[in-house]
Amino acid sequence: MNSKHAIGVAAILLITVMPRVSADEIGGGQLVWLLLSEGIKQQFRPRSVTSGQDTQSAPRVAPAQKGSNECEVLQWDRKAFRKPSLAIFRPGKYCLDQDYEFNCSIFDHGCGGKMIEIRASNVDLDFRGHTLRLSGTRGYGGVWGLGQNIRIHNGRIEGAGAGITLMNRGSSPQNGYPSRPLNTEDVFTDTGFVVERMEFSDVLFAVMVAGSGNRIRDNVIDATLDAKASSGPPVALLSYGPSARIERNTLRLHDLTPGSNGYAIYLRSADGTVAEGNTVRVDDTPTGTIGVGLSNSKGVSLRRNRFDTEKSTELDGSSSMQQ
């Protein structure tokens, strides 16, 4: 009589050391980077679990789990990390299955880091309607990515210093910031980033991308134009590099620091970029607000946008728009 045998396979726990991040890789203004550099005690908790769990000395990333629709669910390993650690290091489709909240006490000196880190190309991150919520700090970011063909969609980010920052090696959104001198050594690869159907609430910078051929569309952005917090002219949406399309976004600006300028959209080295169908509204006085700022950008097309700002556009001497 024949018998059948089941062969067991040993489970392997992968130990991963989180990579260090340099100042050149972080976008969002000089002060935001200084906040990112400060190490302090932090508290981070998913809404469905309680805080106060013991941590381990050797950090590790919890293995992603298969969810429905063939995506891998990102999960925070509370036993390994006392602060946010939702990381992606390989191509694939990923998603969230819950909201996450990070609170930094006002009695602390500051908080730094990001909730989700991506270090891979060909990544699709679906929030599935969930929220990354931050309070008490501007030094923490929502999503930070390094690679190509990264798509982030269908979710919310609240209270972040920088909501979403995406780049590839060779260029950083930090170099496209209004107060920085023009950098002629940056190389713009075909990054093909997509940020769509995201909502940003009470952020300093909603989206910052560097590279060529990026798409930012159908987002709702509520931005605080605090020049002191950003250590320079505040920007809600920054695109650094050529051939971007910025379409059908709705931006609401408020709390501009008196006596300063603030941009809804800022484009640098953005030859051939199209900004179409965007709406910008200012809650308080429009004085100092600018719809689109252009720096070293030629042949930019602005079509059917609605700007409730003091100036619709601001161009430097090396920029031009298509007629």
Rank of each mutant, 00 (worst) to 15 (best):
R78I: 10
R215D: 10
G147D: 00
N122V: 06
N122D: 15
E310N: 02
T287Y: 04
E310M: 09
C104R: 02
S320K: 04
Y240V: 00
P286S: 03
A206T: 05
K114Q: 12
R169K: 14
G28A: 00
W76P: 11
R60H: 08
N103R: 11
G291E: 04
M208V: 15
D202W: 05
I290N: 07
Q42I: 11
D255F: 03
P173L: 07
L294R: 00
L251H: 06
D218Y: 07
Q56G: 14
S269F: 01
N219E: 10
V21E: 14
G170S: 04
L134N: 10
D108W: 11
P63A: 09
T309H: 06
I164S: 00
A64I: 00
S121K: 01
Q322I: 12
D186S: 11
S301P: 01
T224E: 15
L182A: 14
G262I: 09
A11I: 09
L36W: 14
R78M: 13
L74A: 09
S3H: 14
G170M: 03
L294M: 07
N183E: 12
L166M: 15
I118T: 06
G92Y: 02
I40G: 15
N219R: 02
Y240I: 08
D126C: 11
M198D: 02
L204R: 09
S3D: 10
Y266C: 08
R248F: 05
A58L: 14
S212R: 10
F89Q: 06
A275F: 00
Y177H: 12
Q322T: 15
K228F: 10
R128P: 10
R268P: 02
V209G: 08
T250C: 02
G259M: 07
A236L: 04
G145T: 00
S179T: 11
N261G: 11
K298F: 01
T250K: 13
R119F: 04
Q98P: 13
G155K: 06
S51K: 08
P181N: 07
G29I: 09
W144G: 09
D126E: 11
S3K: 13
E247R: 13
F127Q: 08
D186N: 14
V195S: 10
T313W: 01
A62Y: 07
N168A: 14
S201Y: 10
R245V: 11
G8E: 12
G113L: 02
R281E: 05
A80I: 04
S3Y: 05
A236Y: 09
G262K: 06
G29P: 06
C111D: 00
I157V: 12
